[in-house]
Every structure is written in structure tokens, then in C-alpha cells.
Write a protein that binds this DNA or RNA. Structure first.
Length: 598
RNA sequence: GGUUCCGUAGCUCAGUUGGAUAGAGCAACAGCCUUCUAAGCUGUGGGUCCUUGGUUCGAAUCCAAGCGGAAUCACCA
């Protein structure tokens, strides 16, 4: 039982003894004592003054007196207005540190065997465009949340659903067939996804010309012209042939998608994300139809006169949703019904998380309602991890205006900046070329990932390409630096010394910085479970930053290895060691690697 | 127009189911390397927590209305 629970139990029993009122321990709210007051944990007593029939001050006094006598860990208290500040014994804090040190690190919860997994879908790219900044946020979030859930003892299956079919792919294919002259990524020395993306852009510009001509010659408006343009007709013809499994078309489609995957794989690898399973829409886009037809047969869904199938969602105050067109073909929603079922059948998932932008909030709302209507119990296990858009100073990224921030370019830039900054500081002269390049990657990507993940997922965030992502202050490199700094101390101390460090005898008089550091370390497990509950890597990011800051203040004010008192020195060494381990562990949950030297 | 989300320092963001005098970083200014890594540390200035009401011992946080912004309301995905 941890100390918070012990206190809560005591509070409950004191209230019961004094007033006869029974309250749940979950109603006892404890908070960290603010640093301007004396104490470690604070109980706000206002909620209990009625039951206790005392003034807030007297209530707090009563609680304080009892807690000190009943709990060894609580050695002192003070009361300010209705706030009861409790102080824990140094033994309590030192025991915590010793236990953790013996374990060698802060450990995350172990997975329980035989439990149902959580399926996390993220990334889900289109194969006609290279990955951009928005995808980066998606990928980092998905990956990090998977790590965080694992750290909470859950089994996680990371899945990707690639949108590899449809009219947009046909556009790239058509442009390549018409203008490519047999070019390949190899022949042009281009990354596969970029290569294919270029043909998508080319298609759009060719189409634009036709649309303009049609508008001026026949006076059609833009929308009509786009539909009537011969290029669009050709693209639709390609899609029809693809769906009919036309050999030639399928071969080209395979070839071009293959190029894209090669490119994506490189980007994923650099970004450090991976998947346990990849689904392809070309293999799943027909799913869902049967479920819808069953729903129609059993009268849950209805058909209109033209044969189209709909879900009546008026009970949820939503518009009716089309699920099958009059010609029997599926829409996006239908596919998602199918893939949800597939995923559920395949993994027997306890929870299915979809990391998808908030522009699809409504879609997921409807998806859950339709599944529920169809009697699928797993509808309730679907969680849309909805995240905000990454915006530029001038607003949304628009591919037409060329404001899209490319994922590879951005990573290149970050790594390049890391290189420059590191070279200017000149601390890595003795690094080999390989070590250098590893370090630059670590720092550049650390800066980028931390920048993206420290913001609450649900909020829109701003990225200004004009000012590069910072390396000082609340940033990835600052945290990485703190880790490297501690590693340097470890090296100086030497292995023998590190082994013996936990030999420190319980001493008294923890100084303020030591105490705050140890208290922050103590918080780690809570933060990890909170991050999982809130589905927010930002909680981890902000915590690790806080920890690093706390350490640097301590480091600045007190000497660790040069402290003449051996016990004191060993204690500080342990404290530093645990800090480094915790930083590393926390950063791992963000998908960020920390260096030993930088 | 309906629905949902958002509005905190010049800028980017924290702020734990309502709790004490609202916090960081960047930017600006002033300091700190003969000592374990200065990508660091210390200090100064900077606030109508969008506005107005309400709920209560107490509101940045909850409720209502308004203002401003975003997304969405497709037989696109």
C-alpha cells in the first residue's frame, strides 16, 4: 500500500469515528504541497468540515494529530486555513530511493499473461503523397501511446491501415503512364514515395489545364469541368479496370505502391516507429458489406427506393448515414465497420484505439453509433484518440500552395541543426564519424519528437518553419543533455563506486534540492498511469522536463563526487543515478533516445 | 445555420476529478565556467486566465449567454 492510500484510509476512519459518516477513500483528495509551504502532501479539509462539525482549522488539526500518531511515515504537520500540510519522515524518502536503487531503475509495470490486447491504429497513410508534418504528429502519438500503455502493463498491438487504392492512386498511375516514359525512382535517384507523389502533383496540374480550357471554351463551372475533363474520365476508367483486376493495371499499381512502401519504410525507420501488423485497404475495402446487409435483413438498417442502404440515427440526433450506394458499392464508413470487426475477431481486443485527426470526430461518432445499432458490443471499446491539426503561421498546410512541411525534409533539417549546434559547442571532437552521426540523429529527432509530443494531443499546435525548433529550455535536447550530464558523473565515479553507492547509511538533513528531486522521482509511476488514462504523452513530456530541471538545480548547487562526506556523496550519486534512469525510461515512452555523451 | 473542440504573459505551451499568492520555456535585460558537461544555473520585468452573469467556503477549471478562432455536418477517403 502506498502512502497516499494509507493516508486516505486513515482520513476515512477518522471521519467515521468522529461523525459516523462513511465516505469512500476515492473521495479523499490529496495534492502535492506547494513549494512555498512546509510539507510533502496536502489534504484539503474543506469537504469534511460539515461532517466533522468543526472549523476548517480545527478539522485540519484533528486530522493532523491523528495522522502523526497513527502513521510512522507522517512526522509533522502544519495547518494554514483549511489546508493540512503533512511532512513525511526522511526515512520514508530514503527507503523509496534505496528500494528503487536496488532495482537498478524505475521499472514499468510487467505485462500480465493471457490478457486481451489493446489494438492501436496509427499512421494510416495514403500512397499517393509523401508523409508530412501532420503524419509525424500522428505517428509519434500512436507510437508513444503504445509505449505508455505497455508501461502500464497492457499488451499492445500496433497496426497500420494503408490506403493503397482508390481514385487518388489512379491519378498518380495515370500521370506516370502518360508522362513517365518508364522512369523509376532508381533512374531519377528519388525516394519512392516522393517519386510517386510527384506524379500525383503532375496529374493535378495537367487536370487544371484541361479544366481551365473547358471552362473558357464551354463556359462550365469548375466543378462540372473537373468531372467532365478527359483526364478524370481516364482515371475513373483506370479505377474500373483495377477493380476488375485488369492484369496490366494491377501490375502498374503494384509496382508504384511498391515504390511508395520503400519510401515510407525509410521514413518510418528514421522516425523510429514500427507496426506489428499492416493492413491494406485493397484487401479490406470490401469488408463491412456483409455486416451491413445482415443489418438490412434483420431490419436494423433500411433501404431507400433506389436501393441504397442507410442507418437511421435519429435516436442519437444524428443525420441518417449512407452505408451502401444504390449500385451496391461501399463508402468509407462501411469499410471501417468491416475493419473494426476484422480487428476484433483477429485480436479479441479489449480496446481499439484509432489515432486519427480531430477532423474525423464526427466520423468516429457515427461509426460507434452504427456499430452499436448493429449490436456489436465492441463498439464501446473503440476509442478515437483525436488529435489537433498542426498549423502553420498562415493557417493550414495546403499542398496546392506548396506549404506542406515534408517529413523527410524536416528530419534532415533537425539533424543538420543538431550537427551545427554540436560542432559549435565542440564537445565531441573525439567521437568517431559513426558516433557523431548517431548523436546528431538522436538530438535532431529528440528535439522534433519532444516538440510535437509536449503539446496536449487534443489541441491544435503551431509550427513555424521560419524559426527552427529550439534546443534550449523546455526541449528534447535539454533533457537529453541532462541525461548525458549524469552519465558523465557515472563515468567519473567509475563502476566500482557506482556498485557501492547504495551503501549509504540513512542520514538526516536532506537539503531542499535533494528532497524536491526525490519527491519528483517518486511521482513517476503516477505520471505513467495518468498519461495512459488521459492518453496523453504530453504528461510524460512535461514530467521529464520537470525532473531534468529539478536535477540541474540540484547539480548546480551541490557537489556530488566532490562532496567530502562519503555517505552524502554516495547518496547523491544514487539520486543522480535514479534520475538518469527515470529520464531515460520516460523518454523511451516518447520514443526518444537519450545519449550517454553530448 | 446545427454540432463539437479551443481561447492563460509579446510568442509557444503547462496548470492533475473546483483549492493556497496562476506557472515554465522562448524573446528582452542583468549576473554565474580554475570545481562532477554553461545544450546549464540565478535574478528582473511581463497577466482583465476572451467578456458578462451564475453555482459555493472557494472558479483559469463547473453551468448559461455572448465575442473570437478551428473542425465537421459528402453517395470523398
Amino acid at each position: 500500500m502506498n502512502i497516499e492510500q494509507k493516508i486516505a484510509n486513515e482520513v476515512v476512519s477518522i471521519i467515521l469515528e468522529k461523525s459516523g459518516m462513511q465516505i469512500g477513500t476515492d473521495k479523499v483528495h490529496l495534492q502535492k504541497t506547494r513549494k512555498e509551504f512546509q510539507g510533502d502532501l496536502t489534504l484539503v479539509v474543506f469537504p469534511y468540515v460539515k461532517a466533522m462539525r468543526m472549523s476548517p482549522e480545527l478539522t485540519a488539526e484533528t486530522f493532523g494529530k491523528h495522522l502523526v500518531t497513527r502513521l510512522d511515515e507522517v512526522i509533522a504537520y502544519n495547518v494554514i486555513k483549511g489546508f493540512l500540510n503533512l511532512t513525511f519522515s526522511e526515512k520514508f524518502w530514503l527507503d523509496f530511493l534505496l528500494n528503487k536503487t536496488l532495482e537498478q531503475s524505475i521499472e514499468d509495470k510487467k505485462q500480465q499473461p493471457d490478457q486481451k490486447p489493446v489494438v492501436v491504429e496509427f499512421s494510416s497513410p495514403n500512397t499517393n503523397k509523401p508523409l508530412h508534418l501532420g503524419h509525424i504528429r500522428n505517428n509519434l502519438l500512436g507510437y508513444s501511446i503504445s509505449k505508455i500503455l505497455e508501461a502500464n502493463g497492457q499488451k499492445v498491438v500496433k497496426v497500420n491501415l494503408v490506403n493503397d487504392r482508390g481514385i487518388h492512386i489512379c491519378k498518380s498511375m495515370l500521370a506516370w503512364m502518360l508522362k513517365g516514359e518508364g522512369a523509376t525512382p532508381e533512374s531519377l535517384g528519388k525516394k519512392g514515395d516522393k517519386f510517386v507523389g510527384d506524379y500525383y502533383v503532375l496529374f493535378e496540374s495537367l487536370l487544371r489545364k484541361q479544366v481551365n480550357e473547358l471552362s473558357s471554351e464551354q463556359g462550365l463551372d469548375e466543378e462540372e469541368a473537373r468531372i467532365k475533363a478527359p483526364l478524370m474520365e481516364q482515371a475513373r476508367e483506370l479505377l474500373r479496370r483495377w477493380e476488375a483486376r485488369d492484369h496490366e493495371v494491377v501490375e502498374i499499381w503494384k509496382k508504384m505502391n511498391g515504390w511508395v512502401y520503400e519510401g515510407f519504410d525509410k521514413t518510418y525507420q528514421r522516425l523510429g516507429v514500427s507496426f506489428d501488423k499492416t493492413y491494406y485497404e485493397s484487401e479490406t475495402y470490401l469488408l463491412g458489406r456483409d455486416i451491413v446487409l445482415q443489418g438490412l435483413n434483420s431490419g436494423i438498417l433500411y433501404a431507400k427506393a433506389d436501393g441504397s442502404v442507410w442507418a437511421d440515427l435519429s435516436e442519437y440526433k444524428l443525420d441518417d448515414k449512407l452505408l451502401l450506394r444504390a449500385d451496391g458499392t461501399s463508402v468509407y464508413m462501411t469499410q471501417d465497420i468491416g475493419t473494426a470487426q476484422l480487428r476484433y475477431d483477429e485480436f479479441d481486443a479489449s480496446e481499439m484505439i484509432y489515432v486519427v485527426g480531430n477532423e474525423q470526430n464526427h466520423h468516429f461518432d457515427v461509426l460507434k453509433k452504427v456499430l452499436k445499432k448493429l449490436g456489436k458490443n465492441y463498439a464501446d471499446t473503440i476509442y478515437h484518440l483525436s488529435y489537433g491539426m498542426v498549423e502553420l503561421p498562415e493557417g493550414k498546410m495546403k499542398s496546392r500552395e506548396g506549404t506542406v512541411v515534408d517529413a523527410d525534409d524536416l528530419m534532415d533539417e533537425m539533424i543538420d541543426t543538431a550537427k551545427k549546434t554540436t560542432e559549435e559547442l565542440g564537445k565531441t571532437q573525439d567521437f568517431t564519424e559513426e558516433e557523431k552521426s548517431l548523436l546528431y540523429n538522436m538530438i535532431g529527432l529528440g528535439a522534433l519528437k519532444y516538440f510535437m509530443l509536449k503539446v496536449d494531443p487534443k489541441r491544435n499546435m503551431l509550427f513555424n518553419p521560419a524559426e527552427s525548433i529550439d534546443f534550449n529550455g523546455n526541449t528534447g535536447p535539454f533533457i537529453q543533455y541532462t541525461h548525458a550530464r549524469i552519465c558523465s558523473i557515472r563515468r567519473t565515479a567509475g563502476e566500482d563506486r557506482m556498485h557501492k553507492a547504495s551503501d549509504f547509511i540513512l542520514m538526516s538533513n536532506l537539503n531542499e534540492k535533494e528532497k524536491r528531486l526525490i519527491k519528483t522521482l517518486y511521482d513517476y509511476p503516477n505520471v505513467v498511469s495518468e498519461a495512459a488514462r488521459e492518453m496523453s504523452p504530453a504528461q510524460i513530456a512535461n514530467y521529464v522536463y520537470e525532473l531534468a530541471r529539478e536535477f540541474n538545480q540540484f547539480y548546480h548547487e551541490y557537489s556530488i563526487l566532490n562532496e567530502p562526506d562519503v555517505t552524502q556523496s554516495n547518496f547523491r550519486l544514487c539520486l543522480s543515478d535514479l534520475t538518469a534512469n527515470t529520464i531515460k525510461q520516460g523518454m523511451t515512452l516518447l520514443g526518444i533516445v537519450v545519449p550517454e555523451r553530448m
